[in-house]
Design a protein around this nucleic acid. Structure first.
Length: 313
DNA sequence: GTTATAATAT
DNA sequence: GATATTATAA
């Protein structure tokens, strides 16, 4: 099964960095990976917290250079007492530094700026270290609200504003962080599956946002969220190049219906078809120039035989 | 509840 | 900067 299907939602990550901008960025990216994030701007306090609240973190990401405590020292302490996987992070990628990280027991070394792709796989360190990770732990509630999980510990006089030239940017972004809008709902395949289940359960006629929402029972998910999703359908679908349709590599199996329910109906058919096919891409077409802008056309690439079968169903 | 459009994210 | 995804207004 593809890794993405079983993505470990809720991995509890502690990020330590004296630079608030980095913290914020990391936090956002980790949230996108659907991890639970705690940030800390001061290594000493991070250490205290980690020790006091053992078993509430799965992984630590720490900067190398910090005013109050060297990242390597923190790494050492954690390795000594806590046995948590630690990832070091720095803008400095000198071999000697990386080596130092590894020899001190870091399980990875991320170079700043960190890309989200690199973060998607960090959970594997936890699996590797612990041998397992409970994928289903707390799978139902999604980390919408960063403020809930964000533990900001600011050190008093060790500043973030060490580097000149960065000051303005930092302040602007901190400001931004304070007014951080709630995270947008990400319609992951899991969430979408629940959506589809709810729709199926209700039947197409009764599948309206409110009812769907109630059946889904996802904390924080609003009727509007569902309505929006209902309107446009699955956000996690791969959008394939339209060229491929022209090239007739794909068959359009369903052309648009007018209403929202039409869309859901199509969706259900597509899911049905997909359940019978191993390797196919699905995608949606439609652009603003199209007079049927919100008429979604769903295509599936599959053998012509299946194509015809699907039309019969 | 639905649909159109605005706002974000990629 | 275009396009895709989600939020919000109508």
């Amino acid at each position: 099964m593809a890794v993405s299907e079983d993505f470990p939602v809720g991995l509890r990550v502690m990020v330590v960095d004296d630079d608030p901008v980095c913290l914020l960025i990391l936090q956002r990216m980790l949230h996108q990976c659907r991890y639970r994030v705690t940030t800390c701007s001061c290594a000493t306090q991070a250490y205290t917290m980690l020790r006091e609240r053992q078993d509430t973190f799965d992984l630590v990401i720490s900067d190398v250079y910090m005013p109050d405590m060297d990242g390597f020292r923190l790494l050492e302490l954690i390795g000594l007492e806590l046995d948590l996987p630690v990832i070091m992070m720095s803008a400095n990628g000198e071999t000697s530094l990386v080596m130092k990280g590894i020899t001190h027991g870091a399980c990875d070394y991320l170079l700043k700026p960190v890309r989200i792709e690199e973060l998607r796989n960090i959970w594997q360190h936890v699996v590797r270290k612990k041998g397992t990770f409970d994928f289903n732990r707390d799978n139902c509630s999604i980390d919408w609200d960063s403020n809930k999980t964000l533990v900001e510990v600011q050190s008093e006089d060790h500043g973030s504003r060490k580097r000149k030239g960065n000051i303005e940017l930092s302040d602007a972004m901190i400001e931004d962080a304070n007014s951080l809008k709630k995270a947008r709902v990400v319609w992951s395949s899991e969430l979408h599956k629940k959506f589809v289940n709810a729709v199926n359960q209700l039947g197409i006629d009764k599948a309206v946002p409110k009812s769907i929402m109630e059946i889904m029972r996802i904390q924080g998910l609003t009727r509007e969220n569902v309505a929006s999703h209902l309107q446009v359908v699955d956000g996690s679908w791969k959008c394939e190049d339209k060229r491929r349709i022209r090239d007739e590599q794909m068959h359009l199996i369903i052309s648009g219906k007018e209403s929202t329910k039409g869309l859901v109906f199509q969706l259900l058919i597509v899911e049905f078809v997909l359940s019978k096919v191993d390797h196919c891409h699905y995608f949606k077409v439609g652009d603003a120039g199209d007079p049927f802008w919100n008429v979604l056309k769903v295509g599936v690439r599959l053998s012509s035989q299946l194509y015809y079968e699907s039309l019969c169903n």
